[in-house]
Nucleic acid binder design. Structure first.
Length: 561
RNA sequence: AGCGGGGUAGGGCAGCCUGGUAGCCCGCGGGGCUCAUAACCCCGAGGUCGGUGGUUCAAAUCCACCCCCCGCUACCA
């Protein structure tokens, strides 16, 4: 039995996550973690709010509150939302917690002592009025190429040219508009090229997915360079290096360490010894769920950081980097209000199973995919409700009405064999983290059941007095239903549990190791049949824009940001 | 601009690595069944696989160039 640390990218709390964020990281990680538990593996699912960095500091400043005050609220809000989506975190924590802060400082001091940190001086724009160094994008001015008046220091949005702050004509501070001065500052750099030595060999031999492997190898081929790990921000983790007072650790270099500190935090809370078991054993298996923009931080930088401590940590066992979910053909955009945010989604359609299943069915595993309402409607109404829900209902009501709720017979061998094949395909896909593909096999099970029922026509058998044959047929479809519940569990936990009870099973379908019971015969006595799902109304597609507007208005009142 | 990923029936996607009658779901047309939440099952129509050129007996699949979309490109997370 392996030890798995399943980590999902840490949501940055300057905003509420949208559906694309959800499917790319947290939801996918949860589905995978649930699958592993179902297989009987030892799993820790961890993530948390990424709350340091300039954008938060700026937002807090704008509101006249302390950054902590702001992130307290957003963290609580987002954490509750993930609970509503039934994300089964073992620890959903935050980067501004004492355990993480100390852990990060310890790690960086080890790296420092091992000689992977050096300093370099640089000249940066500094706003005398706000008393802070200005990150590139917070210095604005006239673009030297196209003359746009509000070009940012990193790039001109009008002509797309990449800039450096000194290029700007009449530069000014993005917050107060005053003219920045150029001031010398010192930063601490991480010697990534040295720390990453040997990682190429690991990568080439690793079984990481093609997109991650290729991207990373290419990234390395283009040449690794030392990266600045300190910032002149106030809001963040104080850099522990001698002489670095007033500096903080760049968020990217500390948030990824949260996968480790989150486990440490569990130990401190519960007096357990999980960190040793899950993080200090090189045979344990860290798996990360991230978006495609995030690959090198997980495939290179985190491993290099850990390696530079001189201690032994497991390398990434797998990294599932999804492409992007688009919204009706466009990019999700907070500013332009394009898309659906996770609080609005539940306000609009309150059942988390519907969103979970639909999002996994649209999961951008190989390429960008498109969230469309039409597709959402199709998945909920036709896949969940008709194929699965109605199959369950027709089987169970038939057993209730014609057999008084109890049936026992012989399970069709051919069906058993087909289910076994689907189960194997399911496991294979899941192991490769092809969650969308795996969800398809659950549907195939239900379709197999529907087809079997249509072909065998037990209602006709009863009329012809062939009661024993009818019993065999119904017991066989009950067998299929049991498999549907089992395999649906990671995707739609509520419905799977309900179905599990309705077929008369004991305990919870989510019990550890339950997937190993695939192929067993179902109980004889069923529970009370009830519809598993309900369709979205026929006029849903015509009304959805209006409904979304209403949901958005409601949700915005309680949103902290 | 450079690098990476992608462009396959009306919609959503798989196939491409390991060339050889183009596949799945929805929608549409026809039929069947009546146990079921007007659900289910079967049959059918619909694609010159972004464009051009090349390699090959044979290309969605390999190569080159072009067009469009997405991401990354060191202080934005």
């Amino acid at each position: 039995m392996a030890k798995w640390v399943v980590g999902s990218a840490w949501p940055y709390v300057n905003t509420v996550p949208h559906l694309g964020n959800l499917v790319g990281s947290v939801l996918s990680a949860d589905v995978f973690a649930r699958y592993l538990r179902l297989k009987g593996e030892d799993v820790l699912l961890v993530s948390g709010s990424d709350e340091h960095g300039t954008p938060i500091e700026v937002e807090a400043k704008k509101r006249g509150v302390e950054p902590k005050e702001l992130t307290d609220k957003v963290h609580a809000y987002v954490k509750k939302l993930f609970e509503e989506y039934l994300i089964s975190f073992d620890n959903y924590t935050r980067t501004h917690n004492p355990v993480h802060i100390k852990f990060v400082q310890d790690i960086f001091m080890k790296i420092y002592r091992n000689g992977y940190i050096f300093t370099e001086s640089m000249i940066m724009p500094y706003c005398p009025k706000d008393k802070m160094f200005l990150p590139d994008r917070f210095t604005v001015g006239r673009c030297p190429y196209c003359g746009a008046p509000d070009a940012r220091g990193d790039q001109c949005e009008r002509c797309g040219k990449l800039l450096d702050p000194p290029d700007l004509v009449n530069p000014r501070c993005a917050f107060c508009g005053s003219r920045p001065i150029w001031k010398k500052t010192k930063h601490w750099f991480f010697d990534l090229p040295r720390a990453a030595e040997g990682l190429v060999e690991w990568l080439e031999r690793s079984s990481l997915p093609d997109n991650v492997k290729k991207f990373t190898l290419n990234w390395i081929k283009e040449g690794l360079t030392p990266r600045a790990v300190t910032r002149d921000n106030k809001w963040g983790i104080p850099a522990p290096f001698p002489g670095a007072e007033g500096k903080t650790i760049y968020v990217w270099f500390e948030a990824v360490l949260g996968y480790l500190s989150a486990v440490k935090e569990l130990d401190e809370k519960n007096g357990t010894n999980l960190f040793e078991q899950f993080w200090k054993d090189t045979k344990s298996r860290p798996v990360y769920f991230i978006g495609k923009d995030n690959i090198p931080f997980h495939s290179i930088i985190l491993p290099a950081l850990l390696r530079a401590t001189g201690e032994e940590y497991p390398l990434p066992y797998n990294i599932s980097a999804t492409e992007y979910l688009m919204y009706e053909g466009q990019k999700f955009s907070k500013r332009r209000r394009i898309g659906v945010w996770i609080d609005e989604a539940l306000e609009l359609v309150p059942n988390p199973d519907y969103w979970r299943f639909a999002l996994i069915r649209m999961r951008p595993e190989e390429r960008d995919t498109n969230f469309t309402w039409r597709e959402f409607y199709r998945i909920v109404n036709s896949e969940l409700n008709d194929d699965i829900g109605n199959f369950a209902h027709r089987v169970l009501t038939f057993i209730e009405r014609r057999f008084g709720g109890s049936v026992k017979g012989k399970v069709d061998e051919e069906v058993k064999e087909k289910i076994r094949e689907l189960h194997e395909k399911f496991v294979e896909a899941m192991d490769k983290i092809r969650l969308k593909e795996a969800s398809g096999y659950v549907l195939e099970m239900a379709r197999l059941g529907n087809k079997y029922l249509n072909e065998k026509e037990p209602w006709r058998l009863l009329k012809e007095g062939k009661e024993r044959e009818a019993r065999d047929v119904l017991y066989t479809t009950l067998f299929i239903l049991r498999e549907v519940a089992l395999h649906l569990a990671p995707f739609a936990p509520l419905a799977a549990e309900k179905l599990w009870r309705m077929i008369g099973e004991e305990g919870s379908v989510h019990e550890r190791g339950r997937l190993g019971e695939s192929g067993r015969e179902p109980p004889e006595r069923i529970g009370k049949p009830e519809p598993l799902f309900h369709k979205l109304p026929k006029d849903f597609l015509e009304k959805v824009d209006q409904l979304l507007e209403e949901a958005r208005r409601k949700v915005e009142k309680r949103r902290p940001i």
